[in-house]
């Protein structure tokens, strides 16, 4: 049963005011040298924003469209001096936890401001609405279920799992049984049909690497896809290489994917990339009994083993 996300405008507005105040205090006291949040971008949508002066904190926004997982920007701050402030909601904190569990950023250099989140909208879908409708959605909170981010419908972590400062009351948490409906549909097809399905989709891939760049689990120091020696991935955008690319991308985050679905959301040609990640997550649950493979706190399933794991030799 998918969860029904809620758009709570007054709650978001309160959180925004408190976020600005908190960021201003942190920057003013020198507790952080930069605060990573969202600000209004050129197209009216929230864009990642790096506040370095207390007065810049007033430009921070917290509204129904703050869809980015900001944690990935920490990797650009590895070299810098001083602490980094970061605002996260539930899924943002999973992304952050992924990076922390992968030892890619020192926890002691972080000040995390957490905001419990009941649901966010997909910016692209909201942008496509006409002006009146958009106003009704963004100001009065009258959003129907289809406008929400996909990940909100399976979210079981509305409250940040990592936070130094929590703004607002925690929301009630309830278990959401994972459903991989699309994967089950695909599994029911014949191998030929599946091959054709993936071929038709992935020949559209532009190899822009947006899905890799946005992914909080794709945080290796050197990406296999960028390596020249060995050349894992040929540079020609031919179907065989497209499959190689998506094979490597999904399998390398197997067991570490936080199921935020950002890869899918940022894809300029709208490829349903989670069909790969969900398959791996579904199998991890089925084979190794990991209930919530998307939660980094439950140590990554491929980084451990059990004596009674399914016997691979007997499976042939």
């Amino acid at each position: 049963m998918p969860r029904t996300p809620v758009l709570d405008i007054p709650r978001l507005k309160t959180a925004e005011a408190r976020l600005r105040a908190e960021a201003k205090r942190l920057l003013g006291e020198g507790a952080v040298s930069v605060f990573i949040g969202h600000a209004e971008g050129w197209d009216g949508l929230p864009a990642p924003f790096f506040a370095t002066e207390p007065e810049e904190a007033d430009r921070l926004v917290w509204n129904p469209l703050v869809a980015f997982n900001l944690a990935k920007y920490l990797l650009e701050r590895l070299e810098g001096e001083g602490k980094v402030g970061l605002v996260v909601n539930g899924c943002g904190s999973l992304a952050l936890d992924r990076i922390l569990k992968d030892h890619r950023f020192p926890r002691e250099r972080l000040v995390v401001v957490g905001i419990p989140c009941s649901g966010l909208l997909d910016p692209d879908k909201v942008l496509a609405l006409d002006d009146d409708l958009r106003r009704a959605v963004l100001e009065e909170g009258r959003a129907d279920a289809a406008l929400f981010l996909k990940r909100c419908t399976w979210c079981d972590t509305p409250n940040p799992v990592v936070a130094d400062i929590l703004l607002g009351e925690p929301l009630p948490e309830e278990p959401v049984p994972a459903e991989y409906l699309r994967v089950a549909e695909l599994e029911a097809l014949t191998p030929e049909e599946r091959r054709e399905h993936f071929r038709a989709l992935y020949e559209r891939c532009l190899r822009c690497f947006a899905c890799r760049n946005v992914c909080p689990a794709c945080n290796c120091r050197e990406c296999a896809l960028d390596q020249w020696d060995p050349l894992w991935l040929g540079r020609a955008t031919v179907p065989a290489e497209q499959l190689t690319y998506h094979f490597i991308r999904a399998f390398d985050v197997a067991g570490r994917c936080i199921r935020c679905g950002e890869c899918e959301r940022v894809c300029p040609v709208g490829l349903p990339l989670m069909e790969f990640n969900d398959k791996l997550m579904k199998d991890i649950t089925e084979l190794f009994g990991v209930e919530r493979p998307h939660v980094p706190a439950e140590a990554e399933p491929l980084g451990k083993f059990a004596d009674d794991d399914p016997d691979l030799e007997a499976s042939h």
């Binding site: 399998f251 991890i284 794991d309 691979l312």
Partner: peptide
């Protein structure tokens, strides 16, 4: 574990 997952993938 890895190969089991890979085979199904």
């Amino acid at each position: 574990r890895r190969l089991m997952l890979l085979k199904r993938y």
